[in-house]
Simulated scan of single mutants.
Amino acid sequence: MDDATARRKADHLRVALDEDVGHIGITTGLERLRLNARALPGRALDEVSTAVTAFGRELAAPLLVSCMTGGTSEAGRVNVALATAAQRHHVAVGLGSGRILLEGGDAGSFAVREVAPDVPLLANLGAVQLAEVGVDGCVELVDRTGADVLVLHLNPVQEAVQPGGDTDFGGVAERIAEVVAGVGVPVVAKEVGFGLAPADVAELLAAGVAGIDVAGAGGTNWATVEGHRDDRAGRVASAFAGWGWSTVESLRAAVAARTAGRPLTVIASGGLADGVDAVKCLALGADLAGFGRRLLPAAAEGPEPAAEALGVLVDQLRIATWAVGTESVTELHPSVLREVE
């Protein structure tokens, strides 16, 4: 195992918890959307269904605890807290990059299947690392984590800012297609917080991915995170404070690319603030809404605070679905939204 990788993971967790690492000059776009509030929702709140099916499993709500951390002892405690919360509320949960596990690092920080046996578990690896680990490494990662899904994340700007980052993105789409064909579980492609261009979505669909997590700009800026770790990286990162495609732009691109004959799970993430934002994304066509750093402070305190924070999001989502006059999250539609200046 590379000690530098372990230190970097510990730094990422510390910076994400303690520093201001949001985008500057670009927002999610969700603030320009309003839900059409109804004073006569037409039914009792407890009649509203938030249940969905994702990755072959029934979920109590269309939420994903997004891939965040791993590889250090503190990350292990955070992952257990997040996974425990996900199991409590029966929603999907993702792990941080498993590269360090494949390098012989702290496998314990990824061992959460025991506390989350009944929900979709998403393993995670940087797509640029496929040149090193190949399909076999992906199979190993899925097997060792007990994951139902493999997430391949795309982070070119983060890698370019990070000292010693991997910046050879040649052939990445082709390698993703190889993994899709050989890993044996659904593959989701995601950005890490700069969003996906329509051209990216088209290439990923051509590669055969089962899902797209748009991870739009407006939330955590991973170039800024790297900038907090190194002075020169910080100077480089400053030019990318407003980089990327907003969450709404990326989500609309992914939804538009989905066709009736090509099943595709679309995950909306990137700076979602609450359950109302989640409902806006579901109304735009997302299948799941992902929350990352929003849950991190509570998870750092332990399983109970994490479960409470996630429960608040679930309650917000249910109330907003009801208060626009909709019976189920599966019936949410753009007609419940309006754009404002």
Rank of each mutant, 00 (worst) to 15 (best):
A202Q: 13
A202G: 06
E203V: 13
L204I: 04
L204A: 02
L205S: 04
A206S: 14
A206E: 15
A207W: 06
A207L: 09
G208E: 06
V209C: 11
V209I: 07
A210I: 08
A210C: 03
A210E: 09
A210P: 02
G211W: 08
G211K: 11
G211D: 11
G211H: 12
I212A: 06
I212G: 06
I212M: 05
D213M: 07
D213H: 09
V214S: 03
A215Q: 08
A215P: 08
G216L: 08
G216T: 00
A217F: 09
A217R: 10
G218D: 12
G218Y: 04
G219N: 10
T220S: 14
T220R: 13
T220K: 13
T220N: 12
N221E: 08
N221C: 07
N221Y: 03
W222F: 15
W222P: 03
A223K: 09
T224E: 13
T224C: 01
V225Q: 01
V225S: 04
V225G: 01
V225R: 02
E226I: 01
E226F: 06
E226Q: 14
E226T: 03
G227E: 10
G227W: 06
G227Q: 07
H228E: 14
H228D: 07
H228F: 14
H228K: 11
R229Q: 08
R229T: 08
R229H: 01
R229V: 04
R229L: 06
D230S: 09
D230K: 10
D230A: 09
D230N: 14
D230G: 08
D230I: 00
D231P: 13
R232Y: 14
R232Q: 13
R232W: 14
A233G: 13
A233W: 04
G234E: 07
G234P: 02
R235A: 13
V236N: 04
V236A: 13
V236Q: 11
V236F: 09
A237F: 03
A237I: 05
A237P: 00
A237K: 05
S238N: 11
S238M: 08
S238Y: 12
S238G: 10
A239T: 07
A239R: 14
A239Q: 12
A239H: 14
A239W: 13
A239Y: 13
F240W: 15
A241R: 15
G242E: 10
G242H: 10
G242C: 09
G242N: 10
W243Y: 14
W243A: 05
W243T: 01
W243M: 06
W243P: 05
W243E: 00
